[in-house]
Each structure stands twice: as structure tokens, then as C-alpha cells.
Write a protein that binds this DNA or RNA. Structure first.
Lengths: 213, 213
DNA sequence: GCGTTACTAGTCAAACTTGATTACCGAACG
DNA sequence: CGTTCGGTAATCAAGTTTGACTAGTAACGC
């Protein structure tokens, strides 16, 4: 599954009530168009789909205050909130090399209590290690790694990536345990959305060199 | 773009002529179902689509020799071969955190001349470095990284990942320059396909722990 | 006043992906 | 000798993603 649902749920939730264009802008503000499939079509589709499934409720709303077609505002439901936390927890816990889900979940990690965040990340490290040994057992067969030829480099890449991630996760755990950031129930939360009318410093358009999306 | 087209083109090409089920088995043999969207539906869809676009030609073929419906065999065309090499080169060169494309391209890297492989990988490192500095400039604003709060951890993750990849790429370059593997024009190539009737040691079914696909 | 540009907000068809399901055949079983 | 089982090979409907496109309003220059 892609990260679009998690991102959209998170954006709507932080606003309380948001229309599609607002969500679209938030995701852009988070840089999500760089590392996930957060494109207009996908965003509007996700909104409609999740409204149909009861994770959001759609309010029909009067014409836009700033030009353009009339907008629909969305609000997250109880079920939507549950799904949101389920997705955050799952993405933090499980290792499956899906960069977009992982990044999105980091963006929402402070919505959890600090202790739970740390516990989930530790669980993640255990997952990486289990995956690591399962790969080395499974794919580096008795005949020795030479049997695989250059294909072995793919596994090499996986392992290298997994190790790098474990290392980064370890660092994050340390920072969180050291008191960094403001987690759920610890006072004034960090606000990661654009206020109405605020200008987006990271607007679409410029690509990073080397990108080929 | 996903890696499915590259994978399918590569599989058909290594066989000379292959039917869908054969391709499906090869991809499984390569472990592609673990790290890409190489599922039956996608494979058959890609075959049909690319046949329609002239990258493959479809031969209608008599009923299967081993049960099941009649099979269609595919053969790669000139245009398909061009597209194949274009995809390999692009995936090796450009940094865009798409794990599946990268893995697939490593699997086909020995189809290029050794010198070109090294050149592309060096280009890749340059790309990673350019991307790295563009991210640090762009997303770590004047106000200092604190302004971003925990969102800064996402960029931290990106950078960490990029660095790990640059390191791995460097290692691969060294191994290739040191004479590892057999590249195009260097004699007996490594064969990464299953022979007709050969058993697949890495068949589907067992998942690695920690996976959540 | 009036065209032109720019921004807001969303839609749409075409392509792709997914997971389940179908259809066919051979072999084993009782 | 029918029937159930397992492997082969592919299809299908439902859902998702993409990139281009539409349509409305405001603001600007002249």
C-alpha cells in the first residue's frame, strides 16, 4: 500500500477540517511530492474513497473564497482516526523497504506518546534484524555466495540498506529518549500545516537534480 | 515508473523467447516478488502492453505441453532491446530512491560493457551528491534545522540513506574495477534464468519476517 | 474597459496494479 | 472408472495512479 491514505488522513486530522486543495498544499509543504505519490489525482481520489468508506465525512461547501470551483471540506471520523493510528504504528514497526510509508510515519510520530514511539522503533529494529538473518540464510545458499554471481550484489545492497536503516533508527531512538521533540500529551504540539493564506516556501516546480520521477 | 517493464523485458531477452509463466518464474527465481510489484497480473499486463507498443512480438502458440491453457510466446524486438538498455542505464545513473528499479538494474548490469557500467555508477554517485547538497540547501532553511521540528528527521533519514547508498555504490565500483563478474563481451555470460523444467529453489509462499506487503 | 495572465480547485480518461478466480491437464486414489 | 488434487497458464473486476486538462475568479497592464 502507498502512503497516500496515511498522508491524507494526517493532513485532514491536523486541520480539523480541510478541503482537497488545502491537503494538497500541506503535502507539498512536507515535501511529500518528492518522496511519495502525492499528486492531485491521487489526493482527491483518496479523499473520495475514504469518505465512501466512512473514514472521512464530506461537507458540501459554498463557492471558494479565493477563486476556483466550489470546494468540499472533509473531516476525520472516529474510524478514520483509528485507521490513522493503525497506519502510523504499522509503518513505524514493520520493515518492508517502502520509503514513502516510513517517511510519512516519521512525520506523524509525535502524535504518539513518547514511550510508545520508542517501543515501536525498537520493535522495528528487531524486525530489521530478523529480516536480515532470514535473507542471509535464505538467499546465500550452501554453495557459497559465488553461485549467485552478480545477483548477489542485489542482496548485498539490501543488507547494506537494512544496516544503514537500523543505524539511523538507533540514532532516532537515542534522540527521542534524550528528550527531543514534543510528543502527545507533552504540551504545545508542533504544527506542521500551512495556515490559511500562508505562503508555501517549498512549492512544486523545482526538481532536485538526479531525480527521475 | 515501476520496475515491471524492465524486469519483463530482461527476462524475455535472456530467454530469447518466453511465455508469461516462464517470465513469472524467472522473476520469482530472482526474488523479484520480494522487492517489486512482480505479480502475475502485472506481468501479463506488461507483456500485452509492450506487445501492443512494439517492444515485444507475440506468437500465438499451441496448447501447453504441461497442462493449463494455451500459451503465448513473446520475443523482444529491436525497439524493445533499445528500451531495455535505456531503462538499465537510466536506473543505474539516476538517484531517485526507487529500490525496485535499482535492484532490477543491478541484476542486468553485466549486460553492459564493464567500462560503461563503471562510468554509469560514477555518474550515479555524482547524482547522489548533487541531490544531497540540494536537499541540505533547500530543506534546512536559514532559521536552522530546529524550525522543522521532528520533520527534520525525515530529511535526516533521506541523507542517511543517500550516504549509505553512495558508500555501497563505491564498493560495487571497486569490485567491478577489481575484475569481478563477467560483463558484456567477456566470454561466457552468467545465466540467471531457470531452464525448462528446472525447479525453483526460491518459490513464492514463505515470507520474510517483518514484511508487510 | 478589456484582454491576458496567474492562481485556485478539481475532474477525467487511460494506464497500471492487485488479489481472487478460472480453465486446463495429468496423476493418484479408492 | 470417476473424482479429487495439484500444478500450469492466464484472465478479470475492482481499485489506484498518472498527467493532462477544465473551469472559475482576481489582478494587472495599458
Amino acid at each position: 500500500m502507498s502512503a497516500i491514505r496515511l498522508l491524507v488522513l494526517g493532513a485532514v486530522r491536523q486541520h480539523g477540517r480541510a478541503h482537497g486543495y488545502q491537503v494538497r498544499n500541506d503535502l507539498e509543504y512536507w515535501g511529500a511530492h518528492e518522496w511519495s505519490n502525492a499528486k492531485p489525482g491521487s489526493i482527491y481520489h483518496a479523499l473520495k474513497q475514504m469518505a465512501k468508506q466512512g473514514l472521512l465525512i464530506a461537507h458540501e461547501i459554498a463557492p471558494s473564497t479565493a477563486g476556483g470551483p466550489p470546494r468540499t471540506e472533509y473531516e476525520i471520523t472516529e474510524a478514520g482516526t483509528e485507521e490513522y493510528f493503525r497506519l502510523v504504528r504499522e509503518a513505524l514497526t514493520s520493515y518492508d523497504q517502502q520509503t514513502d510509508m516510513k517517511s510519512a510515519a516519521i512525520g506523524f510520530i509525535v502524535e504518539l506518546p513518547r514511550a510508545e514511539a520508542v517501543a515501536l522503533l525498537k520493535e522495528r529494529i528487531r524486525g530489521i534484524e530478523a529480516w536480515r538473518s532470514s535473507v542471509t540464510e535464505h538467499y546465500v545458499p550452501d554453495a557459497g555466495p559465488e553461485q549467485l554471481g552478480h545477483i548477489g550484489e542485489i542482496m548485498n545492497l539490501w543488507l547494506h540498506t537494512a544496516d544503514a536503516e537500523a543505524e539511523w533508527t538507533q540514532g532516532l531512538i537515542a534522540r527521542i529518549e534524550g528528550g527531543a521533540y514534543t510528543f502527545a500529551g507533552e504540551g504545545e504540539p508542533f504544527v506542521g500545516v500551512l495556515a490559511e493564506g500562508e505562503e508555501n516556501p517549498y512549492a512544486t516546480g523545482e526538481k532536485h537534480p538526479g531525480d527521475t520521477h
